[in-house]
Structures are given as structure tokens and as C-alpha cells.
Design a protein around this nucleic acid. Structure first.
Length: 271
DNA sequence: CACGGATCCTGATGGC
DNA sequence: TGCCATCAGGATCCGT
């Protein structure tokens, strides 16, 4: 579910309200998918310092370490002072002096991982190979082009892998490639500097517009106050197979790459 | 090492 | 209505 925009919208929706809170209790439900075998110590008494983000991970910085949260495909967070009893798909309640942060994730592809600091082995394992943050100044078109020249996979799969640039998931990969006029099947190392520049700009543009719109809500994404986003109304190609391209009218086509659906306009996006 | 495929889990949806 | 197949926003692991 959540790609970078949804994770960032979630972060922004509760970060300021939880900052400074004391942890009073932490309850964990069913185990999540990965990584296995990592023990979470008692966090009671620690203070929440700030909430950051790296790629699709939320980083809850506490007094003695960092709680890494990942929302997987179907996860969402809720932050409230009063909550109903936890349901079968609620896998974590972090009770604090300023409200309870609850992780809801039916498919359980998400993660809750404690690390004493970001240099700890578990944190390095999860974050160590991540690419550049697309909305930071460190995301530079020329560097992006250089990194793409080392990859022979189709550009869409390189974006999804997150080792060159993070946060671009299945929806925004199709959207950014449409905006850049690039066919998703083009080998990454065949992109000219000009086209890499266009893609670089498109990624920043699509992701920042999605954050401003509160993210995309397919079926169940909501921010920490339960509000849905509306960027899905703006999708140019994602989920629009057979419908007319908003630019040229050609039917949007779909194909499968690495077991994920890709959407593109065969007219606007050049091989 | 880079790459492609199988895999984890649950729920919604559509065809017959 | 019931049953089955397919698909869904992610990322890891494993074989080649």
C-alpha cells in the first residue's frame, strides 16, 4: 500500500503530536513478516524525541534507540487518545502520555523493529542498501543517470528495487514514467542523460504532488487521523488499463514486470 | 555480483 | 448464494 507519499503523509500527521511523549506501555499482536527473531525490549519510560523517515520506513527516535516501522502493503497507523479495543489486524499499540499509536496491517507484510541506534546491525541490514531520498537535495539528475547506467533491468524494476532511489513503489513508478514519456520496459542503462533528467524531475514532481494531496487511497490507506488521501483521482495511467490516455486519447495498456502490474501509454511513452 | 522468480498473508472482486 | 481464481500499495530470499 504505502509508498513514500503515504508514509510521509502518515509521518506528518502525527509526528508533532507524539513528540515529547513518554511511553507508558507497548503491546504487540501477531508477529509481522520480517525480519524474524528480533526482540523488542521494554520501551516503557522512554521519551519520544522525533519521528523521521527513511524510504518507506518510519523512524521513531526514542531516548535509548529507534523504533523502525514499515507499513508493508496494507499497513496504516492511527494516533488517538481514545481507541477501541485492538482488533485481529492491530499488531502494535504504543501507549504514550499523549496518545496511542496503533499499527493496523491485515496482510502483515509490515515490520516493527527495535534498534539501539541506526548503526546497529539490524538497522544497517534494513536501511543499509537503500538509495537516495528523492525529495532531498542529494537526489541529483547527473548522479541518478550515472547510477542507472550500471543497471540492465527495465527502468521500472530499477525504480521499484529502491537501491538507486527510494520510495517509488508500483503506483508512482508507472506515474513518473508516464510523466517522463519513458516506456517502463526501457533498459535503465540505455536512458540518455536527457531522459534521465526528465525522469528525475518527474519522480520529484509526482511524489511531492502526492504528498500535498494526502497520498493515494486505493482501498484502505488513511493518515494517523483516519483521513484518506485523494491523489488517486489524479492518476494518469495507474489502474486505467483500457481507458483513454488523458493526453493523447490512446488506450492505456498494461503489462506485468516482476509479478507487478505496469500501466503505460504506448503513444506518449517512447521505447 | 546482478538478475528473475517464488514467496510471505489476508481480503476484495469477478466469473461461472 | 457458493466456490474458485485472480489480484492488491512491499521486500526478502534463493537459485542461476
Amino acid at each position: 500500500m504505502p509508498e513514500l507519499p503515504e508514509v510521509e503523509v502518515t509521518r506528518q500527521s502525527f509526528a508533532h503530536r507524539i513528540a515529547g511523549a513518554r511511553v507508558l506501555d507497548m503491546r504487540l499482536g501477531k508477529p509481522l513478516r520480517w525480519p524474524l527473531g528480533v526482540e523488542t525490549p521494554s520501551l516503557v519510560g522512554q521519551q519520544v524525541q522525533h519521528v523521521g523517515r527513511r524510504g518507506k520506513y518510519l523512524l521513531l527516535h526514542l531516548s535509548d534507540g529507534v523504533l523502525l516501522l514499515h507499513l508493508g502493503m496494507s499497513g496504516s497507523l492511527q494516533f488517538a487518545t481514545v481507541l477501541d479495543a485492538a482488533g485481529v489486524h492491530d499488531h502494535m499499540d504504543l501507549v504514550t502520555s499523549q496518545g496511542t499509536l496503533r499499527l493496523h496491517d491485515p496482510r502483515r507484510f509490515g515490520a516493527v523493529v527495535w534498534a539501539p541506534d541506526l548503526q546497529a546491525p539490524v538497522a544497517r541490514k534494513l536501511l543499509g542498501r537503500l538509495g537516495v531520498e528523492p525529495l532531498d537535495d542529494g537526489f541529483v539528475a547527473e548522479h541518478f543517470h550515472k547510477a542507472l547506467r550500471l543497471r540492465r533491468s527495465p527502468i521500472k524494476q530499477v525504480l521499484l528495487a529502491g537501491e538507486v532511489v527510494v520510495g517509488v513503489g508500483n503506483i508512482y513508478a508507472s506515474e513518473a514514467l508516464f510523466e517522463a514519456g519513458i516506456r517502463p520496459t526501457v533498459r535503465a542503462d540505455r536512458l540518455s542523460l536527457t531522459r534521465a533528467r526528465r525522469l528525475h524531475a518527474a519522480i520529484r514532481d509526482v511524489l511531492s504532488r502526492a504528498v500535498a494531496a494526502g497520498g493515494s487511497s486505493m482501498r484502505d490507506f488513511v493518515n494517523a487521523h483516519g483521513q484518506a488521501g485523494h491523489f488517486q483521482q489524479t492518476w494518469a495511467v495507474y489502474g486505467r488499463a483500457g481507458a483513454s490516455c488523458r493526453v493523447c486519447g490512446t488506450p492505456v495498456r498494461t503489462l506485468v514486470q516482476g509479478q507487478r502490474s505496469t500501466f503505460f501509454c504506448p503513444q506518449c511513452q517512447k521505447p
